[in-house]
Nucleic acid binder design. Structure first.
Length: 421
DNA sequence: TCTGGGGTCCTAGGACCC
DNA sequence: TCTGGGGTCCTAGGACCC
């Protein structure tokens, strides 16, 4: 039977979430900013039409946004995660097998579905009605083609947000007009390099000599070209495989000079990374700590360093991870710099029960597993950071700037939406 | 003043081993 | 002057994605 994939992708996801909880925003262009209100990471179509670039530094476009009456919001990940879960639940209830691909999109395996386009339209209508989330649906015989169909569904409103690209004739028609830069897996660099080979459209790429592509770009581009020709190289995954590395890193809300507040920030990042580690039932065998000053201002003295350490025994205990991380930080910290960011990367991950414990390794702290489990349960129920290590302050001086934060309208009793009758 | 965070995969090159 | 062949593992860096 012919394979069929659908890609369901929310339109301007973060902005749409803000609109769901604040309906007056539906009549205005909206943008959402990154952590620390640094740059623009989501734009509604009206904001895009104003020429606001993805990744534009906020301080550079602030005037333009204000003048055009664009609503600006800090990113509210608590809200977005909750809306995402609702969207995925609805899709999962309607489609055979789904693979959640990111916070705002998922794949569905529509192999054997009698009328895939109609199913796509039903899903789209339900998401709009029940959650208020607009989505695009692309359907085709490979993931790369489904992704391109999704692009078409968003680009041409006349499609009604759903494009079924399973027929070869329709595939070819779209491939000929789609710029190669819109193909999934072709980034800015490759697009420029492809242009030098006179490859401008998705069609040009699909017709190009495969061995030459492989020589110039590697197997990834070869796969992309094959997928454009309807040869499926990427399949469905049931769930995301366990991550091979887990990273937590953030810019500080302000520059830090002393080691003390950096230790606090690092403790908070290690706590977050350790939560993620436990949620996929992994143990870390080592970790890397990095520290850097800001990179954008050439007038300030710059310093950037990182160090990797092996843990005496693979662990998921926040306390052990933090001890190793703080020792590592101590080795790379140099006084006299204005630090902007630090990060922790948990590495050499293994699944619990998969490794043989070293007979001579230090014994784990008694009750450690249970303690971590209880801590995760409390934080899951009552909000991240309710129970934390003493190293992590309740109200850090280095925390994120989020001056335009919306309410946690769906996850916090104190911040529910008020409706006046 | 102010430029995100968290991942993946692939490749090349060096160290090391037999 | 001449200096093997084949393999593994690790790391760094590039490119990409959302």
């Amino acid at each position: 039977m012919r394979q069929l994939y659908a890609l369901i992708d929310c339109n301007s996801f973060y902005c749409s979430c803000e609109r769901i909880c604040e309906p007056s925003l539906k009549r205005r262009p909206v943008v959402v900013l990154s952590n620390n209100d640094g740059c623009v990471i989501a734009r509604t179509s009206e904001a895009k039409a104003l020429g606001i670039a993805m990744g534009a530094p906020y301080f550079q476009v602030r005037g333009q946004l204000a003048q055009a009456g664009v609503a600006v919001r800090s990113s509210n990940y608590t809200l977005y995660a909750d809306i995402s879960n609702r969207v995925m639940r609805v899709i999962a209830s309607m489609m055979p097998a789904i693979e959640v691909y990111s916070i705002d999109e998922c794949w569905a395996d529509l192999t054997g579905v009698a009328d895939p386009e109609s199913l796509g339209r039903q899903a789209r209508a339900r998401l709009l009605q029940e959650i208020g989330m607009p989505v695009g649906v692309g359907i085709s015989t490979t993931k790369t083609l489904a992704k391109l169909a999704n692009w078409a569904a968003k680009k041409w409103p006349a499609t009604g947000g759903v494009v079924d690209l399973s027929e070869p004739a329709r595939q070819q028609k779209l491939l000929r007009i789609a710029p190669v830069s819109e193909v999934w897996g072709v980034g800015r660099r490759s697009a420029a390099k492809l242009a030098s080979l006179n490859i401008q459209t998705a069609w040009d790429l699909s017709q190009f000599d495969v061995p030459t592509l492989r020589k110039h770009f590697g197997v990834t581009m070869e796969r992309t070209a094959r997928e454009l020709n309807g040869v499926s190289c990427l399949s469905m995954h049931d769930g995301p495989p366990p991550k091979q590395a887990i990273c937590s890193s953030k810019m500080f809300g302000r520059k830090l000079h002393e080691i003390q507040p950096i230790c606090e920030a690092l403790a908070s990042y290690v706590s977050r990374a350790a939560e993620k580690l436990r949620s996929q039932a992994s143990l870390a065998g080592g970790l890397q700590v990095s520290l850097q000053t800001q990179i954008h201002n050439p007038d300030m003295p710059r310093y950037s360093n990182s160090i990797s350490v092996a843990l005496p025994t693979p662990t998921d205990d926040t306390r052990d991870l933090l001890k190793a991380a703080l020792e590592a930080l101590d080795q790379i910290y140099r006084p006299g710099y204005a630090y902007a960011k630090c990060a922790v990367l948990l590495m050499n991950l293994s699944q619990r029960g998969e490794v043989t414990v070293d007979l001579f390794a230090p014994a784990p702290k008694p009750g450690a597993d249970r303690l971590m489990q209880v801590m995760d349960e409390i934080n899951q129920k009552s909000g991240r950071g309710t129970l934390r290590l003493g190293r992590v302050p309740a109200l850090p001086g280095w925390g994120m700037r989020r001056d335009m934060l919306s309410q946690r309208a769906t996850t916090d009793w104190e911040e529910l939406i008020c409706v006046r009758g």
